[in-house]
Write a protein that binds this DNA or RNA. Structure first.
Lengths: 122, 122
DNA sequence: TGCTCAGTTGAGCAACCGTGCAACTATAAG
DNA sequence: CTTATAGTTGCACGGTTGCTCAACTGAGCA
């Protein structure tokens, strides 16, 4: 048999066609799900989560955040760039200082929903 | 000056002490924020997001999911393990077949909230 | 103009992560 | 028993990522 060597490339025949068809019909398109993964990827790092939590309700400059988290300004700035690109924080320049804050209410909602989920596991 | 070589270890003195103190008081403890990051880390991969979306409302076996996503059973199984460990999906064995489904309503809520956020950016 | 400080950026490196491969377990059927 | 199939797992490898370091920008001030 000249089947491809990968014995794993689903050659199984007992697929539940009805369920799979139903799912295929209701599944969001792949691009939307990739965007969703990219969004949550930004939340999936403890430094970024702590930054988001820090600027949730208060405006802080890079130095403030660096001191608060005990990290270098460079590291914070790198992460702030990702957060900006993802549209999760806004920067407002005042002289030499840039103040950061949450971009919108959704971000607060996502932080909150995750914490609620974790607290209800106990 | 025998300052440490890292010119970056926040030596700045214009920290906004009031704001930083306020934030430090209301910030969730570090462990909770790490757990939160670990939770969202699991959502931060397109394969896992597609699996979650697939089993959101339907029970599917590993073969079904592999066929649906056009991936190997091994890859799916690896990801399902992470999803199980994170408490996001449940597996129910029926003979040789293991059916997977979402673990609880929260997971659906998190998927949904993210999609709503993305859709409202346009 | 020149100095200082807040912040940004690119290169590089170590650690992490997703997947393929192959060997394995578990259940069913002959 | 043997065989077949659904699923799991450890290892290895290539790609990604978070941080440090050093150089840079830009605003304020003398």
């Amino acid at each position: 048999m000249d089947r491809e060597t990968a014995n794993d490339r689903c050659d199984c025949d007992v697929i539940h066609e009805e369920a799979v068809g139903r799912v295929r019909a209701r599944l969001p398109d792949e691009e939307a799900l990739c965007d969703l993964a990219d969004l949550y990827k930004v939340f999936g790092d403890s430094t970024r989560i702590r930054i988001l939590s820090a600027v949730d309700g208060d405006e802080l400059c890079v130095c403030d955040i660096a001191a608060l988290l005990g990290m270098s300004k460079s590291a914070i700035s790198h992460q702030l760039r990702l957060l900006r690109q993802a549209g999760l924080v806004r920067g407002r320049r005042d002289g030499k200082i840039v103040f950061y804050s949450l971009a919108d209410e959704h971000v607060h909602g996502i932080l909150d929903l995750g914490l609620v989920h974790l607290s209800e596991l106990r």
